[in-house]
């Protein structure tokens, strides 16, 4: 009769059934590692971040100044033409206030929520920029369209990664 409970119902399992070994399963943790070649465009982008600069790539046909940079324009289908430095300031295109961590675990009590935001960077084409984090701001004070500036890691701590920028903080304009 005990088996019937498992066979007929879809929701009759209890956590204790698993713990007591009434239901057999086999756990497995894969060991998979990758190291992606950044290539020309993203390689240069990261190298510039290490120097505390943000670089974009311009397509002379559609005239977009693209962030992240790319060696070909996906809309015009042609190689891009020039490297263009852009500012480390911009405006919040959109943001979210996250009370769970990346793995869906809840943030600890008293811990500040994560504040991911898409920043349209000054000097890049409208709608293009950086997905990063906001800092030095309370969630309730964030407004779409607000001006922000990058807060960088110390030069000696930068490693050529998107995290060489710690976060973007509000600035007055």
């Amino acid at each position: 009769m005990e088996l019937e409970r498992f066979e007929l119902g879809a929701t009759h399992y209890k956590e204790s059934d698993l713990k007591e070994g009434k239901l057999l399963s086999l756990p497995w943790t894969p060991n998979l590692k990758y190291a992606w070649d950044n290539g020309v465009a993203i390689g240069r982008y990261l190298a510039e971040l290490k120097e505390g600069r943000i670089i974009a790539r311009k397509c002379n046909k559609c005239r977009r100044i693209m962030l992240p940079p790319r060696m070909f324009c996906e809309m015009c289908w042609r190689p891009t033409d020039e490297w263009v430095y852009v500012k480390d300031t911009g405006r919040v295109n959109t943001y979210s206030v996250c009370y769970v961590n990346w793995d869906a675990s809840r943030i600890k009590k008293g811990e500040k929520p994560h504040l991911p935001a898409v920043i349209e960077i000054d000097g890049a084409s409208p709608g293009m920029g950086i997905l990063h984090l906001l800092g030095e701001v309370e969630p309730e004070d964030i407004k779409i369209g607000m001006w922000v500036r990058a807060v960088w890691k110390k030069p000696e701590e930068r490693e050529g990664a998107i995290t060489d920028i710690l976060y973007f903080k509000p600035v007055r304009r």
């Binding site: 070649d37 950044n38 290539g39 465009a41």
Partner: peptide
Amino acid sequence: VSPGVSYRELTY
């Protein structure tokens, strides 16, 4: 190996 280009640039 193809360390000079990303998978996107290789495909392009």
